Computed example of a mutant assay.
Amino acid sequence: MKMNWKQLAIALGLFLLGYFTFNGKLFAQSAPPAPALEKTRIALAVGGKNLFYYLPLTIAEQLGYFKDEGLQVEISDFAGGAKALQAMIGGSADVVSGAYEHTINMQAKGQAITAFVLQGRAPQIVLGVSNKTMPNYKSIADLKGKKIGVTAPGSSTSIMASFVLAKGGLKPSDVSFVGVGAGAGAVAAFRSGQIDAMANLDPVISMLEQKNEMRVIADTRTLKDTQSVFGGPMPAATLYASDAFLKKNPHTTQALTNAMVRALKWIQQAGPSDIIKVVPESYQLGDRALYLAAFMKVREAMSPDGLFPAAGPATALKTLQTFEPDLAGKTFDLSKTYTNEFVLKADAKYK
Rank of each mutant, 00 (worst) to 15 (best):
L16V: 12
D77W: 03
K6V: 13
K39W: 10
T40R: 13
G24K: 05
Q119E: 13
Q29F: 13
L85F: 09
A112R: 09
A108Q: 04
Q86M: 11
A112F: 03
G13H: 11
Y54G: 00
G110T: 03
S92K: 04
K6G: 03
G110H: 05
M106L: 15
A122I: 03
Q7P: 03
Y53K: 03
K83Y: 06
F78G: 01
L57C: 05
R41K: 13
E101S: 11
T103H: 07
Q119W: 06
H102P: 02
F66M: 02
L71A: 05
N105H: 11
F27N: 02
A28T: 11
N4C: 05
F27K: 01
V46P: 01
I89D: 09
K25F: 13
I10K: 15
L63A: 00
K109D: 09
L85K: 15
N50Q: 14
K39R: 13
A122G: 09
G90W: 02
F22R: 12
L12T: 12
V46F: 01
R41A: 10
M3G: 00
T40G: 03
P32R: 15
A99C: 07
V46C: 06
F15S: 14
A60M: 06
Q86V: 06
L44S: 00
N4V: 02
F78P: 01
P33Y: 12
A93V: 02
G47Y: 04
L71T: 04
Y54H: 14
V96G: 08
L71P: 04
R121L: 07
Q7L: 09
K25P: 01
A60H: 05
P33D: 15
M3P: 00
A122R: 04
A93N: 04
F27S: 00
G80M: 06
S76L: 00
Y19I: 05
G18K: 07
A11W: 11
F116K: 05
E38Y: 12
P32F: 12
A108N: 04
K83M: 08
V46R: 01
L63S: 00
Y100M: 07
P56G: 07
L26W: 13
P35S: 12
Q119S: 09
K67D: 08
N105R: 15
T21H: 02
K49E: 10
A11L: 13
P35H: 12
D68R: 15
Y65M: 08
N23F: 08
G120F: 03
A87F: 02
N50G: 13
K6L: 14
Q7E: 15
V96R: 11
A122W: 04
P35F: 12
Y53G: 02
T114N: 04
V73N: 05
H102L: 11
K83D: 14
L26F: 13
A115M: 04
L26R: 10
Q72M: 05
Y19C: 06
N105K: 15
A115P: 03
T103M: 06
F27W: 09
L55W: 07
L14K: 15
I42L: 03
Y53P: 02
G18W: 10
A34L: 14
Q119P: 00
A84H: 10
G80C: 08
A79C: 07
P56M: 06
L37M: 11
K67W: 03
L63Y: 02
K6I: 14
G120W: 01
M3A: 08
F52L: 03
G91S: 02
S92N: 01
K49C: 00
V95Q: 06
Y53N: 07
W5Q: 11
K6E: 14
